[in-house]
């Protein structure tokens, strides 16, 4: 199984990035090999629609699961259409989130927000 997580740094001990669409990197972690690779998120510098493009990257890298603190409605459309399951990350490191997911301790992300479009938000 392949797990995608938005990342600030290329370090699995680091916390999950609070933004999905504009995260600098994505961790793609393979649970079979217990190995992770960090991809640059080319959507981060988009003028608009970053979430859609970021979701495209996650889909193209054949993730089965996305662990993220939040996700916009349009990104969710792409993610859901590809059948990727979305879980809400906890405020712990990326690798600990993966462990928590493997122990079934993460809840499904149910609230998808409308875009921030430069207006901040939580």
């Amino acid at each position: 199984m392949r797990i995608a997580i938005p990342a600030n740094e290329k370090n699995m001990e680091d916390l999950v990035c609070p933004s999905f669409g504009r995260a600098p990197y994505f961790l793609i972690y393979d649970t079979q090999s217990s190995e992770g690779v960090f991809l640059e998120n080319t959507a981060a510098s988009s003028q608009g629609g970053a979430g859609i493009k970021a979701a495209q990257i996650v889909v193209d890298n054949k993730a089965d699961v996305l662990i993220t603190p939040r996700c916009g409605t349009q990104a969710a459309e792409v993610i859901n259409a590809a059948g990727i399951k979305v879980y809400k990350s906890q405020n712990i490191s990326m690798i600990d989130n993966i462990k928590a997911f493997e122990k079934n301790e993460l809840a499904a992300l149910e609230n998808f927000h409308a875009g921030f479009h430069g207006h901040g938000g939580n």
């Binding site: 959507a43 988009s46 003028q47 608009g48 629609g49 970053a50 859609i52 493009k53 979701a55 495209q56 889909v59 193209d60 349009q74 459309e77 792409v78 259409a81 590809a82």
Partner: peptide, 19 residues
């Protein structure tokens, strides 16, 4: 598309009309 109004998913192009 500079505005990322198109995505490719399920082997199809998907249009985001509002974007």
């Amino acid at each position: 598309c500079k505005f990322n109004a198109l995505a490719f998913v399920n082997n199809k192009v998907k249009v985001f009309e509002d974007i």
